[in-house]
Structure formats: structure tokens, C-alpha cells
Amino acid sequence: MQVPPPFLMLPNQLTIGRIVAIPVICLLVVIDWDWLRWLALLLYIAAAITDWLDGFLARRMHLNSALGKMLDPIADKLLVGALLVTLAWTHDLNGWDLIPAIAILMREIFIPGLREYLGGRAIDVPVTRLAKWKTTVQLVALALVMAAPMLLGLAFISHVALWLAAILTVWTGWEYLRSTWPHLAGPEL
């Protein structure tokens, strides 16, 4: 069986689709019409599902690629980061929610920078199981925040979920930093 070029591989197309959906989701949230908010939520849920589905299909179909390995975590971070900024803009995140939102953004920028630096020194920083759960909790929390204005009684749950996502995010960031510290504490080679 001939392997298609990376851009034509279904898992990579799903990842690229997730990236393309991000500005559409954010625009629909900003417009803030009820039916467009529902559409944004459905599109967001579909994008979030592709986070799991692209990896599953890549493994199942033996279509792992360097492009997919690079794009998948970028797509996750773009989806989470862009939506956090959008929800802050629309005031779906209240003042206290900005604390977990900023914590999430800081970790999601810091750890890829750490990986990039250590990758240049040929040091691999593999994704942990808890970090995969962290992403799932982030995606669920943001879905709840998006849905909260439309479903009575969901606001408190969405705030708790966002704080839980932030705690997991900071915890996994600390784990990565702690595990890589020996490579950072010495002189530059």
C-alpha cells in the first residue's frame, strides 16, 4: 500500500481542519447571537473530537507522519488559546476566571518553548498521560464555558471545570520543568 503525501493523510486533514475551524468558532462566539453560539459550540465539539480522532486514525491506519506529530499539539494549543482570548473578550470569563485562563496560556506557551530548546540539544520531552488528560479537561471546560450562557445552572460547573483545567495545566507544566531541570541547570553546551 502506497502512503499518501502528509497533507492528504486523513489524520492530518482532520488536524488541519481543526486549525481552520478556530477562527470560525471564535467569530461565531464574538457575534453572540444565540443560534450562532450553538453553532460555534457544535463546531467546537467537532474540533475537540478531532483531537482524539486524528491520533486514533493515525495509529490505526499506520499513517503517522512528522507533519502530524508537529501539527497536532499546535492545533490543540491554538484552539485552547484562541478560545480563551475570545471568551475573555466577550466577558464569558469573569475577572476571577482570568486567573486560570492566564495560567493555561502561560503553560501552553512555556512548555513548547522548553521542548523546542531541548529539542535543539537532542533531548526528547515526551508527552505524559496526565498531559493528555489535561488537554481533554481543557477542551471540556471550554465547551462548558461556551455553553453556560445558554444553559441555566451551568455557570458554576463551567467555572469549576476551568479551574480544574488550570490546576492540571500548571501541574503538568511543573512536572515537565522538574523532569527537564537537570538539562537546564548546567552551562549552555
Score class of each variant (00 low, 15 high):
M150K: 10
L142N: 01
G113A: 06
V160F: 08
L162M: 11
M9F: 10
I167N: 03
D97E: 15
G17E: 03
V160H: 02
H159A: 13
A147P: 05
A47S: 14
R178E: 13
L152G: 15
F156E: 15
L57F: 06
E175Q: 15
V29L: 14
M106W: 11
T172Y: 12
P4G: 10
T86P: 09
L84S: 06
H62K: 15
G95M: 07
S179I: 06
R178N: 11
L162R: 05
I157K: 00
A75K: 08
V24I: 15
A75N: 10
P23W: 08
L98A: 11
E175N: 13
A185M: 07
H91E: 15
L142S: 07
A148T: 02
M1S: 14
L177Q: 02
Y176S: 08
A166F: 10
R59C: 10
H62G: 07
K134A: 05
A155N: 13
L142G: 01
L67C: 01
A165M: 05
P182Y: 06
R59Q: 01
V30L: 11
N12F: 08
V29H: 01
A155K: 13
I19C: 04
L14D: 04
V29E: 08
T15M: 05
L57K: 00
R59K: 14
F156I: 14
L151G: 01
L43W: 02
A185P: 00
I111A: 02
R107M: 12
V24M: 04
A143E: 02
I111L: 08
V125N: 04
F56Q: 03
N12Q: 07
M106V: 15
E116H: 12
A166Y: 10
L79T: 15
L27V: 14
W35M: 12
D76H: 09
P112R: 11
L98N: 14
L78I: 12
I111C: 09
H159W: 12
C26M: 06
I49D: 03
E116Q: 13
V30G: 01
T136E: 00
P187Y: 06
A88P: 04
R37S: 08
P182K: 01
W96R: 10
I22A: 13
D92A: 15
D54W: 01
T86S: 11
Y176I: 06
W33N: 06
I16P: 09
A166T: 12
R129L: 13
D76Y: 10
R60T: 14
L162E: 07
D34Q: 13
A143R: 05
L71W: 04
K132D: 13
Q138R: 05
Q13V: 10
W171M: 12
T135H: 00
D32R: 06
I25T: 04
W33C: 02
P149H: 03
G68T: 03
L27R: 00
L84P: 08
A82I: 00
G186C: 01
M150H: 08
G17L: 06
A147L: 15
S158K: 06
P100E: 09
R59A: 09
K69S: 09
I19R: 07
F7I: 11
I104T: 11
R121N: 09
L27H: 00
H159G: 10
A40G: 00
